[in-house]
Design a binder for these strands. Structure first.
Lengths: 114, 114
DNA sequence: GGCACTACCTTGCGCCGCAGGGTACTTCGA
DNA sequence: TCGAAGTACCCTGCGGCGCAAGGTAGTGCC
């Protein structure tokens, strides 16, 4: 697995909660999220985001409403629910522990130093 | 996906390179790696590690030798190869970028603060 | 009319962690 | 002597998700 492929695998499980984090302050629509996540390097295509949003909706972590766009097709807006907020809070804790574990191993001092 | 399940997904792609990092200074054997990775919370069972080690060997990122154990069955020791070291170096860079992206989104300031 | 952009969505593939199960050797106490 | 516990290696099947690729419409401009 190359470093690129490894990052693809890392995204699993992270993207989902990053979406929740993006919805923490304001409702947003899918196409907008696609652009932001792509720019951040967290997804590679729409094919990741839309199925993910469907899952979040099915699990009641987000709620949706259709709104007309000033120009173009209508947009489906997503907003964080109470359970969604809880899931996000839990993940922040889990992420911190995970990232710390990886970094401890990745940057551990070489024992023979000095 | 709960926070636990999310971490399970996060491990994909990270565990592999953590193994390479553990081999950076010294050769080690599988059972030993299983214990260390389990203690670090990076794997949940042997069923993750042994197939992973086989993949690394197939891709020439590690080289192996059998050595007798002072007590018990013989051990297969794994050592980092040149390509393995390169893969590890690449991953450290990739990880840094990925972790930064996640943390930027996860802990971004709430715009309406103040 | 045709092209580009916006905005939604689906299907199939491939990959990997995990649970669970299996083999075999050594040691040690009953 | 026999069996349990520990060491050490391994495999198979399942499930879940990111991705590539492709599909459907509505809007606006030339």
């Amino acid at each position: 697995m190359g470093a690129e492929a490894a990052v693809t695998q890392l995204r699993r499980g992270a993207v989902e909660h990053c979406v929740l984090a993006l919805l923490e302050d304001e409702e947003r629509y899918g196409y907008d999220l696609v652009h932001e996540l792509t720019a951040a390097g967290l997804v590679a295509s729409e094919g990741t985001v839309y199925p993910l949003l469907s899952r979040l909706r099915k699990d009641d972590l987000v709620a949706t409403v259709w709104r007309d766009s000033p120009a173009g097709p209508p947009r489906r807006y997503y907003a964080l629910t109470r359970p969604g907020q809880r899931a996000l809070d839990d993940f922040r804790v889990a992420w911190t522990g995970f990232a710390a574990a990886v970094e401890t191993i990745l940057h551990r001092k070489h024992q023979e130093d000095r």
